[in-house]
């Protein structure tokens, strides 16, 4: 599903450049549930953004669903994101003036689905994350956990190949963290590839594979107990 080889990424800072990813090799197969761990500034988000086609890498190769990602224009990138990827962010990134239902339905709008159908599908997904009754509420009327569940519904609504989550529980307390992780596990159980960034061991333990980053290189890549138990 995701295949990364000798990937490098630097950020220009003034005249210098900051070498953030220094040759990453990573292969994630369909249906995996992977977490990336590492201290702050180790390049986790950078990696995820490249995988999510929100940013571009400098060197190395990246294949998404077998397709080499190279010299992609924004239009093609937008279509690939819409088709293959679902995003979950730490700060939820819901659109404040749209209801929960409309937020979930938005990716389908860019897919070209008509409004009626869109809202119907979106409602199904809201139901799936247990928020059917909150469909007509605006984001600021929802709790943090609810917001993140709406965001997850939005990430799933186009039925993507991979769900990418950058510290999805970073802004949540323990109970809501568990409910969000349970949701991600359910999704993974249904066959979805899930790729999470976290710096909480308890969260990482609930995934099936942990990749540890330090200073832009992978220092370990192990299966969790949960995976071994299966």
């Amino acid at each position: 599903m995701i295949r990364i080889e000798k990937l490098h990424k630097s950020y220009p800072i003034g005249k210098d450049s900051l070498h953030v990813l220094k040759g990453i090799d990573l292969h994630i197969k369909e249906g995996e549930f992977v977490s990336i761990m590492g201290s702050s500034g180790s390049g986790k988000s950078t990696l995820l953004n490249i995988v999510g086609l929100l940013d571009i890498h400098d060197e190395g190769e990246y294949y998404l669903n077998g397709q080499l990602i190279k010299d992609l224009n924004e239009k093609k990138a937008a279509i690939l994101r819409n088709k293959f990827l679902g995003f979950v962010f730490q700060s939820f990134n819901l659109i404040s003036y749209k209801t929960a239902l409309e937020n979930v339905a938005l990716p389908l709008y860019y897919k070209g689905m008509n409004r009626k159908e869109r809202l119907k599908v979106a409602l199904d997904y809201l139901d799936k994350v247990g928020l059917k009754d909150w469909a007509s509420h605006l984001p600021n009327e929802l709790s943090g956990g609810q917001k993140q569940r709406v965001a997850i519904a939005r990430a799933l609504v186009t039925n993507p190949k991979v769900v990418l989550a950058d510290e999805p529980t970073g802004a949540l307390d323990t109970t809501t963290t568990d409910s969000v992780m349970d949701l991600l596990k359910d999704i993974n159980d249904e066959g979805m590839t899930v790729f999470v960034i976290t710096h909480e061991e308890e969260v990482a333990e609930q995934t099936k594979r942990i990749v540890r980053l330090r200073d832009g290189v992978i220092i370990s890549d192990t299966l969790t107990k949960a995976a071994k138990a299966q």
Partner: peptide
């Protein structure tokens, strides 16, 4: 900008 960024992450093309 942020909203537009979100929309683009969700698959909005520059044209749209």
């Amino acid at each position: 900008t942020k909203e537009i960024g979100i929309r683009r992450a969700l698959g909005a093309t520059p044209k749209s």
